Amino acid sequence: MPDKTTLALTDSPDGIAQAAEVLRAGGLVAFPTETVYGLGADAGDDRAVAGIYAAKGRPSFNPLIVHLADLARVQELVVWNDRAAALAQAFWPGPLTMVLPLRPGAPVSKLVTAGLDTLAVRMPANDTARALLHAFDGPVAAPSANRSGQISPTTAAHVAQGLTGRIDAVLDGGPCSVGLESTIVGLVGQPVLLRPGRVTADDLARVLGQPLAERKQAEAISAPGQLASHYAPNAGVRLNATAWHDGEARLGFGPVECDLNLSPSADLVEAAAHLFDYLHRLDALGRATIAVSPIPHLGLGVAINDRLSRAAAPRTVSGPPTL
């Protein structure tokens, strides 16, 4: 498929205006958020959204998140409720995605929802993302800007490595500050944690005044990021390594000798920010296995372990969607 000229744009006013024009023309633009780089298209344009699936090689049963600039835009697309309002007040703009009932007649491609009657929506906090969304003045569907199932991108260079020639532009806004995809919470019926992230289950429970249910593995996909094999490098991944094997690339946490250390001081926020970038770097060494130190399974560590467990899962193979 690589046959496009991929523009490299800066996050200057001219670069943002050019990126918005590419979106209006039905093109694909990779842009930074505080979580990871997203691959954006006009969420109301069937052909543009189909281009996301084709560029990523993403299964068409995997829904997309729609990014919006302000709350009024969000409420045009979904059926709003008091729980959503409370979470928006606490965490938006920010790294939280809410899955809500799709408003009847909402101008969103069915490819975005993968045929579901719900929509995943988010207001990102990143300044470049917000400037692009305001300039485009509409809903932007955007999964992570990488080939499907591979390591998520946290720099423009990561995007270029995987998608040059497959998309129209990369808007460079520097490295992502959070470094993990957004938390996803389902708000249809009982609140349920669909994907852990920087906003933890405890954070959500405090605002909602009730604990969240957890999605069961056997349930059908209802939000992005739920495939068992995801975020995977070319190398195999060995988790909870307390000793290193010969020939492995070593990803440490805490005071251990290793090739790269997510956080020598065992800071989970620092570890999350480094996770995907360090997986990219170690994968480039060309070794068969990346061994990873144990990560505490609490707070943000739950989200880090979720991404690592999916990176270590048996690989799935998927082609472009049938449209």
Score class of each variant (00 low, 15 high):
A125S: 10
K56V: 02
A125F: 06
M98K: 11
L71V: 11
R122N: 06
R83K: 14
A90N: 12
P107E: 02
H134C: 11
R83C: 14
I52G: 03
P101I: 03
T118K: 15
F91S: 00
P101T: 01
R47M: 10
K110C: 04
I52M: 14
R103M: 11
A48V: 13
V79F: 13
Y53E: 03
N62K: 01
L133H: 05
R83M: 14
L100C: 12
R122T: 03
A135N: 10
K56W: 03
K56R: 15
R47A: 14
P63C: 15
P95I: 01
V78D: 04
A120M: 01
W80C: 11
A41R: 05
V121E: 01
R130W: 11
G105Y: 05
A85Y: 10
A86G: 06
R130M: 14
G57Y: 03
L68G: 06
W80A: 14
A114H: 00
L64V: 06
A90F: 08
S60R: 14
R122H: 04
D117E: 13
A41L: 10
N62A: 10
P93W: 04
A114R: 00
A120Y: 03
A85M: 14
H67Y: 10
L96K: 13
A129W: 05
V74E: 08
R103A: 11
V99C: 15
D127G: 13
P104E: 13
H67P: 09
L77K: 09
L102W: 02
G57E: 08
L87R: 06
L96P: 10
A54Y: 03
P107A: 05
R58I: 09
G57V: 03
P59G: 01
V78K: 06
A135E: 08
L68C: 12
A55Y: 03
A43V: 00
A120V: 01
A131I: 02
S60E: 10
P101R: 14
M98H: 12
N81P: 09
N126Q: 13
I65H: 00
